Amino acid sequence: MPPPAIPVPANATTVEVAVRWSDMDAYGHVNNVQYLRYLEEARVYAFHEWFGQERSLLEDGVLVARSEIDYLAPMTFSYEPALVTLWCSAISGASFDISYVVGQRGSDLTFAKAESTLVTYDLTAQRPRRIAEHERAAMESVAGEPLLLRSHKDRRAH
């Protein structure tokens, strides 16, 4: 689980993601683009858990509309996996947000926190589609408060 400094809902899912030597940049830190890959991999495994083994939201169509990451500390290579903890932090008619906290087994540091907005998508019609009730129910079962990212200054004022 991520360090207690960042509140994480009890129903959040934590996925282990391998940190590869090739993920490092010239400074010996995990490259910023690799974090997006860590989030993606965690999402794939979490969706499989959240939406069941019969069908996944990924098979029905979902697109990433936005991703935002606050980098908090540099992650260096380790044989220990990154731990990506994620939950659904907002649900609307055809989109939803996922919040993430990135840590690492054996470390008390939080390396990043992030949020992605995803849109449910009809692959045949090539347009957004409404979130189905069974999908909404699955997302509500892993729902929690959104993270406050640096760009959310207006949210802090309320």
Rank of each mutant, 00 (worst) to 15 (best):
M1K: 12
P2G: 14
P2S: 15
P4E: 01
A5V: 05
A5N: 12
I6H: 13
I6M: 14
I6E: 15
I6Y: 12
P7M: 14
P9L: 10
P9T: 09
N11M: 09
N11Y: 04
N11I: 08
A12D: 03
A12G: 07
T14W: 06
T14Y: 02
E16K: 09
E16F: 01
A18Q: 14
A18M: 11
A18P: 12
V19L: 04
V19A: 02
R20W: 10
R20A: 09
W21S: 03
W21R: 08
D23F: 13
A26C: 03
A26L: 09
A26R: 11
G28Y: 11
H29D: 04
V30I: 14
V30A: 12
N31T: 08
N32F: 00
Q34C: 12
Y35T: 10
L36H: 12
L39G: 02
E40C: 01
E41G: 00
R43A: 01
A46W: 03
F47A: 04
H48K: 09
E49G: 06
E49Y: 11
F51N: 00
G52I: 05
Q53H: 08
E54A: 10
E54G: 07
L57Q: 00
L58I: 12
E59F: 01
E59Y: 01
D60K: 08
D60W: 06
D60G: 12
V62C: 06
L63I: 05
V64F: 02
A65E: 03
S67I: 13
E68P: 10
I69H: 08
D70R: 05
D70Y: 13
Y71V: 01
A73Y: 01
A73F: 04
P74H: 08
M75N: 05
M75L: 10
S78L: 11
L83G: 04
L86K: 06
W87S: 05
W87P: 08
C88E: 00
C88G: 06
C88F: 11
A90G: 09
I91E: 15
A94N: 15
S95Y: 01
S95L: 00
S95K: 08
F96P: 01
F96M: 08
I98V: 13
I98S: 00
Y100G: 04
Q104H: 07
R105Q: 15
R105A: 15
G106K: 03
S107A: 13
S107F: 04
D108I: 02
L109M: 03
T110P: 00
K113C: 13
E115H: 14
T117A: 03
T117C: 08
L118N: 12
L118C: 11
V119I: 06
T120V: 11
T120N: 00
L123E: 04
L123C: 09
T124F: 07
T124K: 15
A125S: 12
A125I: 07
R127Y: 11
R130T: 13
R130L: 14
R130P: 10
I131M: 03
I131L: 11
E133D: 15
E133R: 09
E135T: 00
A138F: 01
A138L: 00
S141W: 07
S141Q: 07
S141M: 01
V142I: 13
A143V: 06
G144Q: 03
G144S: 10
E145C: 03
L148E: 10
L148G: 09
L148I: 13
R150C: 01
R150N: 09
R150T: 02
H152M: 12
K153C: 02
R155A: 10
R156W: 02
H158R: 14
H158F: 13
H158D: 05
H158Y: 03
